[in-house]
Amino acid sequence: MPQRKPRVLVLSGDGIHGESETAHAFEIAGFDADIRTLNELMISRVTQEELTRRWSAFAIPGGATFSDTLGSGKIFALKFEHGLGWDLQKYADRGGLVLGIGNGFQILLRMNVFGTDLSLTTNEAGKFSNQWVRVIPNGARCIWLKGLGTLELPVRHAEGRLMILGLRRPEILSRMERQGMMCLTYEGGLHGSEREIAGICDPSGRIFGLMPHPEDYIRWSSHPEWTSATNRANSPGQGLSLFENAYHEAMRVL
């Protein structure tokens, strides 16, 4: 008997452009993916109930929503909140998984999913940068990173420097630490990001945002050095394991 597959809702439109590869990565991991524009969801008035009922996971891919005007992710986050009004925390509490990649991470952060007084701002050098980095999962809180070691992943962004409001910095850092939120850090730091943070999860570990792009490393042959190990040409890339973790969790809840 064919086993029921979990579904993922992948957001698109208004300048998101990573929807195809994000959906593809979820599909390789075992999901069925639905790509929907925010406008479609708003027009058909998809409720929080429906989200929970139909989709095991919800992803906001990378892109440059509203041309990054007023800070990347800002206007899209407002449109999402005013247009859909979903409470992602509640969605997670009821078994949903949420992923924000790049611009999607910026959008989640601007919706205060990870608390207030955090920001992702312009890289220290003021430059857009496309390079590969090493990132280290920390702690066991984040479901997406469960059991993973150091990962090599591409980053492609101009606004990926995590900052914390100076006045409340100690308090926020200790809370984040206590709750296992600082779940992914850059080896050696990047772009001046606070505590070398590359990704954050919420205290439940089900909502995860990160600047690097795991969906763009699902085959070894997209690694910048793969031609020196062609015997592994058909191997998967390390990024795929995040989506596989989500699949196992979704199957457990389903």
Partner: peptide, 25 residues
């Protein structure tokens, strides 16, 4: 090259540069 997005869509097989030990010092 690093200031232009050359890997969007995750389809790259050969990039403008080959890199040895990416992400390391």
């Amino acid at each position: 090259i690093r200031q232009l997005d050359h890997e969007a869509q995750g389809l790259s097989v050969v990039k403008p540069l080959h890199t040895v030990s990416p992400g390391s010092s």
